[in-house]
Structures are given as C-alpha cells and as structure tokens.
C-alpha cells in the first residue's frame, strides 16, 4: 500500500470553453503552476456537463471531479452555469447514496482572465481530495 503522501489523485475538470478553459490557458501564459494531475476537459458550456459524465468519471477511477463555469449572470447561454450548479448538487446526493463522499464533486465559477484563481482552485481541490484519500471505487483502493 502506498503511503498517503504519495497519493496523486485523478481529478477530472470539466471546463467551460467560454471561461474556465481560457482561465487555464491564462494560468499557463502567466506561468502559474498547478497540480498536473488535473485533467481538463473542454466543454462548450458548463451546462453541457451531464450528471452521467460525472458519474462515469468516478466509474473510471476519478478521485474528484470539478465543474468550472462562468460567473453567475455571465453565462453566454444564460442558464448553463446555474444548471451545472444544480447538477453538481444532484451528483453530490447520488454519490452520497452510493457511499462516496459528495464533496468529491465541486463547482466553481471563474472568468477567462482569472488564471491565478484557476490555479488556486486546482491546488485547493487537489489538497482536499488528497485529504479524502483515493476514491473508494478505485480498483485496488
């Protein structure tokens, strides 16, 4: 068994192409680093992220999932970010039912120029997931 310090969580970050994805680009452009184990998946709007996508990420061994969208009232598709927020809440409950800590899924909002915020979120979430340990579903966990 690996020591807890060596645990490198698998984190899937669904990023809205209008904001969070560009914020990740900004972080890179500013050479602000963040944990490399955050796997960014570009989506056209946070509203495209389905409850099923998140559940499947856990099935495939993710330890945590992030949904990153635009700030409230700044969604190009009006309600996409609000819908994403509600879905994250639903996944929290669905995971809790399964016996997986709902806190493993979080939603944040950011603007394209918030590179440092992106890095901060990535760092904080990485630390939180490390605290929680590997997902109980993960094979070999």
């Amino acid at each position: 068994m690996k020591a807890k310090g060596a645990f490198l969580p698998d984190i899937v970050a669904f990023c809205c192409a209008q904001s969070a994805y560009q914020a990740a680009d900004t972080a890179g452009s500013m050479r602000i680093t963040y944990p490399e184990n955050i796997r960014v998946i570009r989506v056209p709007c946070a509203g495209r992220v389905d409850v099923l996508h998140i559940l499947r990420a856990f099935e495939k061994g993710a330890d945590g999932v992030l949904v990153l969208g635009c700030h409230e009232e700044a969604c190009r598709h009006l309600s996409g970010n609000i819908r994403a927020k509600n879905r994250v809440q639903r996944v929290n409950t669905l995971l809790q039912e399964v016996g997986i800590d709902g806190k493993r899924v979080e939603m944040f909002t950011l603007a394209p120029n918030q590179g440092s915020r992106f890095a901060r979120i990535a760092n904080e979430v990485n630390e939180r997931i490390k605290e929680l340990g590997p997902s109980p579903v993960k094979s070999g966990a």
């Binding site: 990740a24 680009d25 972080a27 890179g28 452009s29 050479r31 602000i32 680093t33 490399e36 960014v40």
Partner: peptide, 15 residues
C-alpha cells in the same frame, strides 16, 4: 493543448 495547459504551466519537465 500542450502549450498553455502543459509545458507553460508545469515547470517540472518530467511531469
């Protein structure tokens, strides 16, 4: 995206 979201963001060459 191997520039902004990889080589620019992660100074550790191996990672």
């Amino acid at each position: 995206n191997i520039r902004e979201q990889c080589f620019w963001a992660h100074p550790d060459k191996g990672k």
